[in-house]
Design a protein around this nucleic acid. Sequence first.
DNA 1: CTGAAAGCGCTTACAG
DNA 2: CTGAAAGCGCTTACAG
Lengths: 352, 352
Amino acid sequence: MATIQEIARQLRVSVSTVSAVVNRRGYVSPTMRARVEQALEEAQYRPNDMARGLRLGRSRTVALIVPDLTNSFYARLMRGAEDYLASLGYRLLLADSREEWNRQREYLVSFANGRTDGILLVPCRSTDEQLATIPQLIGKTPLVYVDRSPLGPAVDSVVADNVHAGYAATSHLLELGHRRIGIVSEPLDLLNGADRLAGYKKALRARRVALDRSLIRVGANTEDSGYWQGLELFKLANPPTAVVVCNNLMTLGLLSALRDARLECPRDVSVVGFDDFEWCPYLSPPLSMVRVPAAELGALAAKALLKRLNGAGKEARETIRLPTQLVLRESTATPAWKSLAGGKTQHRRSRE
Amino acid sequence: MATIQEIARQLRVSVSTVSAVVNRRGYVSPTMRARVEQALEEAQYRPNDMARGLRLGRSRTVALIVPDLTNSFYARLMRGAEDYLASLGYRLLLADSREEWNRQREYLVSFANGRTDGILLVPCRSTDEQLATIPQLIGKTPLVYVDRSPLGPAVDSVVADNVHAGYAATSHLLELGHRRIGIVSEPLDLLNGADRLAGYKKALRARRVALDRSLIRVGANTEDSGYWQGLELFKLANPPTAVVVCNNLMTLGLLSALRDARLECPRDVSVVGFDDFEWCPYLSPPLSMVRVPAAELGALAAKALLKRLNGAGKEARETIRLPTQLVLRESTATPAWKSLAGGKTQHRRSRE
DNA sequence: CTGAAAGCGCTTACAG
DNA sequence: CTGAAAGCGCTTACAG
């Protein structure tokens, strides 16, 4: 592949001149420019970004690490980040940690060594000790946490308002008349999970509904765990008439559990899931879901990172918290005992 | 960030020695090694991959460009590639062309300029002229086409056996007794689309069912186009009793069309979709789908690329074609006219 | 076994 | 306006 040197030698001009026309900077006489451009074209010249990056000390490249790229929530988050970055001439490198600390560690090191300008991280589940090693792994590469953030305040992060999301989902069920409301929570070592559960508790408290610990199940964010935790809930002596499920894969699992327990949704049990996505209206029944603004999360995180890159980097770290939205479809309804007793019509939303 | 030079100076040894211990190559006396390792540790040394890549002329990095990362089919393909590459110490860079030629072009150039070792490409829809410019865009960076391949034979590619997939889906419907079978095809400028349609025609021919052009609708791979093409089919004077839909998003759209046409699946119309994925069993009805081995596609493409990288690169280009699988659920059944006439029980599969 | 030096391809003051 | 030269951080023959 042709280099600037070769082009310069061939044309008997200096490399600075060739470099100037390649980068459209500095003055080059029109005739000179034309000659160089033609030579570049003929030689099929392509700048070597590694050399350029080495010289410049930056690559206009940002990395994003997510815990599961097959989960459309993260795919949309990625897209939000990419669109924002592309509009400013930055490239996005993507990686999937598979919720495994070792993979995440390797990616962090790899991106830091590759001298990526900055890193966007949806951290995988990890212990406090692991989290504490992150700064050391990445050296001085700027980092912004997205969607999930560690508990310490000294980081930049962009997350959803999970407390309010949990509160809103639970309140909706309470308003329909449900009093025994179960929750399949995310792991509590994830701040998101803890916050959503806190919102649930807050909603019960606001309505003066006593907290029943047997209705709180902590899942592992997988379809399987949604299934098993759901079954536990349904075989309780006094089972819930409604369930909040804090992640989309677990919602899927809970649907299976419902089926295997011969329960019908929403007739027997109402369900509110988390992380709405394109297929939800087509599920059976169409699911009421909390929509978390994935693309905005990605875009704002990218924005915060670039700000950190360009600013002196001395401003205080900040956490941005985005509102969520409750999308009602057909998986939530007035509880059976109430519609029987009170004769109220069953609460349903049209499909759209 | 500390450099090898700095470490060497500080220790009063040569850079070669430091480099040798960093890379665990060549002989360094144990005491020397220990001293260097400690200094490296203290200085929090991280090798600069750009410098290394510039010097070595390779980066152990491969790029993958897909047309839609929010489509779980491509997410799984990506995962297959990543797993294979990681096992051999290669990194994967991901990009999403959004089915837009301009984005794809920029990524190709960017990866080529970044001196990525090789590129895996699921090409976006493009004209023959656009396709013809690809070699020029990427210079001599090795390229393997995945899932979709251009028509010329002079490329490496790993694709599904789409002719047979279309044949199997259609044959299944024919065996159930359907004779008016519609198809919502992918765009025909995509070889995949053309092949799946060819398989459909082949199946009809094998059963001596006359081809009815009004039953063939060409969609655009979007949910919207699945919806509209589906409606066209259903409002035919003589509508189909079954439909093959050649892509997962279009299948989604067709489900909406069915609903809006007040048709029930599979009672009124049977449906076989393409690109099975995790939520299909939960859809209403659970969908019978052609499963394309996305992860294998990704892994084998990565393998073919590495072979090209390491081999002298002189072997003939080759196309690898993977078999698909028909997954039967509840969206396909004996046609109504037949169950009425023949008194046969309706053909159903359990949900599993 | 260890050190001095060249060179990967580029950009950018600094002269002329 | 254009050219000669240094240097980004690394690896690797080549001497010693």
